[in-house]
Design a protein around this nucleic acid. Structure first.
Lengths: 151, 151
DNA sequence: CTCAGTGCAAATATTTTGCACTATG
DNA sequence: CATAGTGCAAAATATTTGCACTGAG
């Protein structure tokens, strides 16, 4: 979609869990494959609803493992529950469509360069940063122009 | 603290509420003056605890009004409840100390310029952005070097 | 006096935890 | 077979809502 184009073939999330020394269980298989085959961003509750056969606690625990391992990003949504999405690019930022909630990833070297120039203005030592860009995605723009009741 | 130096004398939050056509009540006075005299960032629950004489619902309702009016920023904290801080600079970003939670504000023209250059790479129309910089603030750096048990 | 605003407590939402049971390695 | 992992339901936490009462204009 952006700077980094196709970075397919991320190692399965289940493998990520194994690498952490965790067992390969059917519950974890269900959760990770649902994440990998589902829509790009989701909430914990959504996942629970989609996986009635897996206990709520297990879903939350699995998500936490994946976030800790860096395989999932936790996106702080201002309203309700946080959303999660698979981290495809090492360090990146997110685009979030305010209409439909679609989440995209991008990486832009300028952002990192800005961080360096900010360093001297900040009253402390920078340890990390997070940037979210709110957009109206192209599909939503398209459907908007249908009902052209714009002010 | 940074680019924009002193922008004191923001209109009292209570005035902001009046401008919205809301009444000037004692509960709202209590909430807004507590916010203005308290520490820079706070959670809704903290405010409730500090104002036992004001109902929890009123605290939440007042915060919501202020956020809607743009007088307070809602900072999505990844762990627990979101934090709020007074918006002093029109459009700005935040520094958050990972150790002590202190929140600072800064504005940097380069950030806005980056947004413009990103526009052509993003698959949709940018409607807003939010950037948070995680730091270890100078006070925490100082107290760290005391107990120099660093790995 | 009227109705916006309030406080309370119950409802709702989200996430974590304790514990007995199950199944992976 | 030992114990990591699970499911459930209860607890903990965070926020919203219904409703009768109060007070600002």
């Amino acid at each position: 979609m952006t700077t980094e184009s196709q970075v397919r073939q991320e190692p399965s999330l289940l493998t990520t869990l194994e690498d952490l020394g965790l067992r390969k269980t059917s519950a974890r298989y269900a959760v990770t494959s649902r994440i990998e085959n589902g829509s790009d961003a989701f909430t914990a509750e959504e996942l629970c609803r989609q996986l009635p056969e897996v206990g709520r606690a297990t879903v939350y625990r699995t998500i936490r493992h994946l976030v800790d391992a860096g395989a999932l990003c936790k996106l702080p949504i201002l309203d309700g529950a946080p959303m999660y999405s698979i981290a495809r690019v090492e360090h990146h930022h997110h685009t979030i469509c305010s209409k439909c909630g679609a989440v995209g990833e991008f990486r832009h070297s300028t952002v990192e360069r800005v961080m360096r120039s900010l360093a001297k203005e900040i009253d402390g030592q920078i340890t990390g940063h997070k940037m979210e860009i709110f957009i109206t995605c192209n599909s939503c723009l398209a459907s908007e122009s249908d009902s052209s009741s714009d002010a």
